[in-house]
Amino acid sequence: MDFLGILNSTVGFVIDPVTIAFSLAALGLAVHFGFAGLLNMGMAGFMALGAYGYAIGILTFGLPWYIAAFLGPLAAIVFALILGIPTLRLRGDYLAIVTIAAAEIMRLLFLTSTFGPITGSADGLSGHNSGSFWADNPLPEGQYDFGPFRGTELDWWVRIVGFLILCVAVAIVWLLVNSPWGRVLKGIREDEDAVRSLGKNVFAYKMQALIIGGVLGALGGLVLAMGQNVNPNQYVTSITFYIWTALLLGGAATVFGPLAGAVIFWVIQAFIGLLMPALAAEGLLLGLSSIQAAQIKFILVGIALVLIVVFRPQGIFGNKKELTFVK
């Protein structure tokens, strides 16, 4: 077994576009849940919109990549409005139910063969990056390796764009949550009626938060689509729960917690995903096949989520006093 190789690939995941995408989505969820108290269980739907908006914009409408990149976030705004208008006036749990269903509907719409010519149906979309996005890559062709961080000029181009998007997103979210606007949002998380009694339009704030978090989710999907093909199977409900795990791991009511959570989560998951099949191949896992062993990581994710919520509800970086599940 090549343990060093596994470790090396694992470290490489820190700057993988997938990690960046998850960080963005987790940041969006932090705005939703950590700061506004909105239970969004449909982050996968927002991500799908970001990814498909981008790919469809390029493939169907022939837009340059930097314009197509705006389609997903725009779609996410519309999606947030559609979800929010009927549910944000109701009690919080309703949003959870509606979002989980809406995200699934979204995925099925991308999957159905009815829109096959546009969405690619079950095959998804590919080739959207090879046009203007790759052409605009300023890096000269070649392989660039820095220790465990390896990749071609195209890999690095995605990472750079993704990282820039992430930096801007973090800066904006940081400004938002540390402003009087963020204070109102946290107030709403604590008690809507109290904030209402002070003359704040609670519905408008919740809608703004839903939109901002949703756009961040779409940006996550966008970064994901810049690095790989777009496929409806990527945006299943379990993705939403991965993001929740990453968020709770890092600390829901923080700005940097979700980023750290996403990195830790994704790196550990990659590590287990590589280690288990390797162990199984050596026959060290009670006769499990490599494929069965790869599934173990999903079990571990579930266990991790339970452990975090029970033993460290505020996350690694959260302030115990600021966010706990017991009120």
């Binding site: 402003s179 009087p180 606007w181 204070r183 604590e190 109290a194 904030v195 002070l198 006093k321």
Partner: peptide
């Protein structure tokens, strides 16, 4: 608003803050 500081509770009362 339990998980806000007393000061933040108070500041929320202000109707004049453009930053909201």
């Amino acid at each position: 608003l339990s998980l806000l500081t007393v000061m933040d509770n108070m500041k929320l009362g202000s109707t004049q803050q453009l930053g909201e």
